[in-house]
Design a protein around this nucleic acid. Structure first.
Lengths: 160, 160
DNA sequence: GCCTATTTAATTGTGTACAATTAAATTTGG
DNA sequence: CCAAATTTAATTGTACACAATTAAATAGGC
C-alpha cells in the first residue's frame, strides 16, 4: 500500500512521480492531435486525389508558384528525401511540373499545371468543412494556431 | 493594382481571400509543431536506442504492462499495421516480449523485459531536458497540452 | 583561370502510418 | 450446440519522413 504524498492542488502541473505519464507529455498531445486532424482531412481530400502532405504542398504552391524544391522544403519543413517522391506523384497526377532551372541547373522549379491551379477552387471549401468538424470558436482556433506557430518559431531558431 | 477591401482589425481572423494560406491553417501549425518537437527528441532518444514512436510505446508500457496490442493501440491512437512492426523492433532490441494470451489466443500481450523496465530510469531526464529546450513556462505548456487534449477528445468522439 | 568548398536534388535504407485484406479465435443468435 | 458475426493481430501495398550519401553545378579564394 502506498501513501499519496501530495494530492496535487494544480492538476495541470504533473507530480514528480508521473512525469513520464503519457497524459503529461505535451509531445504526445501534439502527436495525437496532429494525427487526428490529418485523419479528419483524409475523406475531404480523397475527392481531389490528394494525400494530406500533398495538400500541404499544393497550399504552398497556390500561395506562390513556381518555387524551387528548396523553397517548398523551407515552407513545409520537409527535406528533399520526402519532397522529391511526393512531387513526382503530384506530377504524375497532372497537378505540377518539375523543370530544371536554366539559370542554375542545381535547382528544380515546381510549377502548377492548369489542372493544379484549378484544383484550388475545389479546395476552397475544405477549411470551412474542417472548422465545422472541430466545433471550436474561430477565435480559439486562431489562438491555438498562434501559440503553435510561436512554439515552432522558437524551436526553429534554436537548432543547437 | 488591387484595392484592399478590409484592412482586418483582427489579424488572427484570416480574410476571405487567403483562407487557404499555409499560415492560416491550424492543421499545418499542428503538423509543423509536431514534427519539430519529434525532431527535438531524436538526439535525446538516440542514446537509449529508441525512435520517437518507440519512446511513446515505452511510455505507455511503463505506465501499465503487460498490455495487449489493442490496448496499446487505443492508448497511442495507432493500429496494428503500425504497432506490429514497431513492437517487433522493440522485442529485437530486448525491451519487450510479445506472447499470445493463453486465455484468448487472439490477443498478444506485450510485456517489459528487465532491460525495458530499467530504461525508464534513463528516460526520466528527458522531459526536463525538452522542457528546457522549449523555453516556455511550465504553466503555458500545461495549458497548451490541455487545449490539445480537449481537441483530441472532441475529434475522437465525433468519428462520423 | 583553377581548385576547393558549398549548394541543390536525388537516392538509399530504415522506420513509421494507414487502408484493406487475411486468418484464426471467440462470441452470439437461433 | 452450431453457424454466422465479431474480434484481434498480422500482412500487403502505398505513402510519408529523415539521416546519410551521392552527384552535379555553382561560387569563392588565391
Amino acid at each position: 500500500m502506498t501513501i499519496k504524498t501530495a494530492p496535487s492542488k494544480t492538476p495541470a502541473a504533473p507530480a514528480a512521480g508521473d512525469l513520464l505519464a503519457l497524459d503529461n507529455q505535451l509531445c504526445f498531445a501534439l502527436y495525437a492531435a496532429s494525427g487526428l486532424v490529418t485523419r479528419a482531412y483524409r475523406p475531404l481530400l480523397e475527392p481531389l486525389g490528394l494525400t494530406y502532405p500533398q495538400y500541404l504542398a499544393m497550399l504552398a504552391l497556390w500561395e506562390q508558384a513556381p518555387r524551387t524544391v528548396k523553397a517548398l522544403g523551407q515552407a513545409l519543413d520537409l527535406d528533399s528525401g520526402t519532397l522529391t517522391p511526393l512531387l513526382k506523384r503530384l506530377e504524375a497526377a497532372g497537378y505540377v511540373t518539375r523543370t530544371r532551372d536554366a539559370d542554375d541547373e542545381r535547382r528544380v522549379q515546381v510549377a502548377l499545371t492548369p489542372a493544379g491551379a484549378a484544383l484550388k477552387a475545389k479546395a476552397a471549401e475544405i477549411p470551412a468543412a474542417l472548422a465545422c468538424r472541430l466545433d471550436i470558436p474561430a477565435q480559439d482556433i486562431a489562438a491555438l494556431r498562434a501559440t503553435l506557430q510561436a512554439l515552432a518559431r522558437r524551436m526553429r531558431s534554436e537548432q543547437t
